[in-house]
Every structure is written in C-alpha cells, then in structure tokens.
Simulated scan of single mutants.
Amino acid sequence: MSQSELDELTEHINSKLSKVKNLIHLRDIGNDPEKQKIFSRIAEEVIGLAPMLKQFEIRVAEERASLKRLQELHALVEEDLQDAIHMSENVPRNLPLPATAAREEQKENEAPSVKEQPAVAGPKKSRKPIKEMEFITVHEFDAIPAYMKGRVTYDQLNSAVRSFNKAVTEKYKILHQPPRSLNNHSRKLYDRFKENETGETKGHFFVVEADLREFGEVTMDKRFLNLLSMLRHCQRIKELRGGRIIRYQLL
C-alpha cells in the first residue's frame, strides 16, 4: 500500500471515530432532564418552521416565473430596439407617396392652370400625363434575393429609379411636342423614339438603352443592368425584346 493510500485510509478512520464520539456525547446529553426540555423546545420550533419554508418555496417559484417572463419581455424589447435602430440608420431619402397623393401631386405639377391655358379654337387633344416609377420601399428591398442584391444598397437602387424616371420624362417631353416646333437635334430624337415603338408598346411608357445613357446619364454596364434586373424583380418594369433592341417598359 502506497503512502497516499495509507493517508486516505487513516483520514477515513479518524472521520468515523469523530462521528462516533459525537453520537456518544449527544446520547449523554439526551439523558439529562434539563437538556431534554431544551431539545423539545427546539423540536417544536423546527416543526413550526415547516409551513414557513413551504410558503417560502411557493414565493421563490412565483419569483422565478416572474423573472422568466421579464427575461422574455426584455428579449422582445431588445429586438424592437434593434429594429428601430436599423430603421433610423436606414431612413430612405425618397419615401413613396400613397397612390392617391402621388396622382394629385402629379396633376398639380403637370396640369397648367386655367389662366395659363392659351385660347385655341376647336377641341384640343389631351395628352396622357408622363408616368414615373414609384420608389422601392424598404420592405421590397429586403425581399430581393441576396444573390441578386449582392452589395447594392437601398439608396443605390432608388438612385437607379431616379435616373430611369429622368430618362422617361425627358423622352416624353419631346414626344409630346409638335414635331415642327423641334430643333434639328430634338427632331432626330423624336424620329428615333418613333422608330423604337411597336404595337406592344402602344399606350405605354418605355425607354431603351440609348435613352437611359443620354437622359438618365448612366453607364449601361453590368452593375446598372443588375439594378434593372432588381427593378424588374420588384415589378416596376418589364423587358420587351425585338429588332435587337431591349425596351424597358414601365408597369
């Protein structure tokens, strides 16, 4: 037997002997009538503590349940806080107007007042107001698949919307003018716009790559083509192909 094993055995034996001594000492105390009275009072007090301990256990269980509910509430509040921080840090520069308000604003900006309308003889042909693409909402942007979105930001996508709207507006301003009132450059553009029209685009607003480059001031590179794909995914435009030309039609 090793020295460590011998020490452990000695410690175990001494522990047992100590307990036996304590029991003998308590037995001697128990035979004393005075000590028996003290033990009886202690026993009564211990018995009286049992209901108090039971109530204490109940209160502890209730507090644990309350703590669990508070932790769940804290998690919900923390989640709402993070959402609020995200929203405050990503407030869009251009918030889309409700459809009714947008139409009213468009009418106010585009329709001349009664005083400004020149007096003409006979009925005047009304022109369809130039349509503009609505800005992408945060919810729509978040719904775009990650593989398509890549590193494109919300502002970059809506910047493409602004460029697209600018190209549409400039193009149809020329188309809404009488051809005889146009200068040579605008007349050439007018003829090109007419050549790009098809039966499928009749009554709709659309642009081609040349319009986007000239009026939208964009570079038709892979990055911008990807932005157009995202606008198509968000159902803002659709592509019409024909005659080696891609037409981007507003929906």
Rank of each mutant, 00 (worst) to 15 (best):
A65S: 10
T100D: 13
L231M: 15
G150H: 06
Q55N: 08
V161F: 03
A84R: 10
L67P: 00
R103T: 00
R103L: 01
M220R: 06
I85S: 10
E104L: 13
A102V: 01
G48H: 07
T10K: 03
D32H: 11
S126V: 09
R64T: 07
P96N: 09
Y147P: 09
I42V: 05
V152W: 00
T100C: 01
A119G: 07
A65Q: 11
I42K: 09
K149L: 14
T219H: 12
E116Y: 04
V77C: 14
E214Q: 15
K54N: 13
Q82I: 04
I136Q: 12
E134H: 05
M87T: 06
K188S: 15
D142W: 00
M87A: 14
S229F: 04
R232F: 02
D211Q: 02
S18C: 05
H204V: 00
E78N: 12
S18K: 10
N196T: 03
T201G: 08
I144F: 04
M148A: 14
E197Y: 06
K238M: 04
V168R: 02
K131I: 11
P178I: 06
P96T: 04
E79S: 09
A43Y: 04
Q82H: 08
K131R: 15
N31V: 06
L240T: 02
M1F: 13
H185E: 15
I174V: 15
E200S: 12
V46F: 06
I13H: 05
P112T: 11
L240F: 00
L53H: 01
L26W: 09
